[in-house]
Write a protein that binds this DNA or RNA. Structure first.
Lengths: 210, 210
DNA sequence: GGCGAAAGTCAACAAGTGTTGGCATATGCT
DNA sequence: AGCATATGCCAACACTTGTTGACTTTCGCC
C-alpha cells in the first residue's frame, strides 16, 4: 500500500474541520469538537496540521474553476455563469466554509477576494470587456448574496427555489452586469454625479426570450 | 432632571458594543473589550444589561423603515427602494452589526429574516404583487450581497462605487425582481420547475449524471 | 451634617480555549 | 525475532471567556 494509515485520519480530520467550520464559523468551531467528530484526540489535529489557523487554511482551499466565457455566445454568458456558480456552490461545501468564516476572519476574507475579484476580473479582461473589475464585483454581490440568503441565513423563499428557478431569476441580472454599458456616472467624477440615472441600460427581457 | 447619570454610561456601553460587534462579530467581541472602549469596568456591563446576549439584543435593535411603495410609480419603485436601502445602510451601523453577527449567531439571523423577509413581504403584498415572498427574498439577496461585499469583505471595485453609481447599477436589478413576471422555463428545455436538478445545462458538458 | 441608595471597582470563580510534552501502542523493515 | 518509527492517547499548561459577589466611593435628599 502506498496509502499510509495517517493519510486517512488526516483526511477525516479535514472533512470534520470543513463541516465544523462551515456550520459554526471560525471561532465557534473548536479543535476539540473537530477532533471528536473525527473520533480522534485533539492532539492529533495539532500533530497533523500544526495549528488551528493552518488547519483552517487547508480546509478553505478552493478554486471556482470558471468556464472560459469566450467559448459561449454573449447572450448566454450570464446564464452559463450563474448556473456554473450555483452548481459549484451546491457541490462543494468549501464555499460555505469560506462564506461563514470570511465575515469574521481576515484570512478567509482575503481568499474570498482572491476568488471572486481576483479570478473573475482577468476572465472578463480576456473577454475584452470594459470595467472588468466592477463587473466582477457586481456579479460577486449577487452571487454571494444569493448564497448568503440560501445557505447561511436560510431565507425560506430563497431556500425553496430550485436550481432552475434560481438560474432563471438571477441569469438576467448577471447577464446585465456582464454586458450592459456602464451607467451614467463617470469614474473620473468631474461631472455631477447628481446626474440621475439614464435609468435603463438595455431593457432586461424575460429569460430565454432571445 | 429626569436624566439619570446612569443613562449616559448605559448609552456609552451600547455605543461601544455596537462598534465592537460590528467590527469583530459576536464571539470575538468580548465584554472586556467593550467595557474598555467605554472606559468602565466589565462588571458594569453585566449590571446594566444582564448578559452578553441581552447586550447584543439591545445593540441589534433595528428597523428598515421602508417607504410606502404604493406612493411611487412602478417604474421608479426599484430605484427608490435601492436608494433607500443603501442610504439606510450607510447611516446606521446597526445593519453592519447584524450582518457580521447573523452569519454565526442564530438570534441575529432570525432578526435578519424578520427585517428582510418579514418586513419586505407584507409591503409587496400591500402593493398587490404576485409571489411577494420570493420577490422580497430576491431583493434581499442583492441588497445583502452588496452590503457584504462593500462593508464586510471590502471588495475594492464595490467599495469604490459612489452611492449614485451603486444605485444606477443595482436599480434595474431590484426593479426587475419587483416587477418582472415570474420566469418559468429552464433555458432551452420547456420543463416545469418541479423538475429538480435532473435537468442538465444544454451545451456545456455536465459532469456525472446517468 | 448624616444616611441610604446608586454607581463604580476589585478580585476571583468555573468553564472552555489552543497548545504542548510525555508515554503507550501499533506498524513496517531487516 | 527485534528495533525504530509512525501513530495515537492522556494529562496538563497558560490563557481567555462570561459572570458573580463583596467592597468602596459618590451622589441626592431629609
Amino acid at each position: 500500500m502506498a496509502e499510509k494509515k495517517s493519510d486517512r485520519t488526516r483526511a477525516s480530520i479535514l472533512a470534520a474541520a470543513r463541516e465544523r467550520f462551515g456550520a459554526d464559523g471560525y471561532e465557534r468551531a473548536t479543535i476539540r469538537a473537530i477532533a471528536a467528530d473525527a473520533s480522534i484526540d485533539p492532539a492529533m489535529v495539532m500533530r497533523y496540521y500544526g495549528s488551528k489557523e493552518k488547519l483552517f487554511a487547508a480546509a478553505a482551499e478552493f478554486d471556482v474553476r470558471l468556464p472560459d466565457l469566450r467559448d459561449v455566445p454573449r447572450e448566454q454568458a450570464g446564464e452559463v455563469l450563474v448556473r456554473h456558480l450555483i452548481e459549484r456552490w451546491e457541490e462543494d461545501d468549501t464555499l460555505r466554509v469560506l462564506l461563514r468564516t470570511a465575515v469574521t476572519n481576515e484570512a478567509a476574507a482575503e481568499r474570498m477576494r482572491q476568488v471572486f475579484v481576483g479570478q473573475l476580473t482577468p476572465a472578463f479582461e480576456r473577454a475584452a470587456m470594459d470595467e472588468p473589475a466592477v463587473r466582477a464585483g457586481l456579479i460577486a454581490t449577487q452571487a454571494l448574496g444569493f448564497a448568503l440568503c440560501r445557505y447561511i441565513l436560510e431565507f425560506e423563499p430563497i431556500v425553496g427555489l430550485s436550481t432552475d428557478d434560481a438560474v432563471a431569476w438571477l441569469g438576467p441580472t448577471i447577464a446585465r452586469y456582464l454586458t450592459s454599458p456602464v451607467p451614467s456616472a463617470p469614474p473620473t467624477g468631474h461631472l455631477t454625479r447628481c446626474e440621475r440615472r439614464a435609468t435603463s441600460p438595455p431593457a432586461t427581457a424575460a429569460p430565454g426570450a432571445t
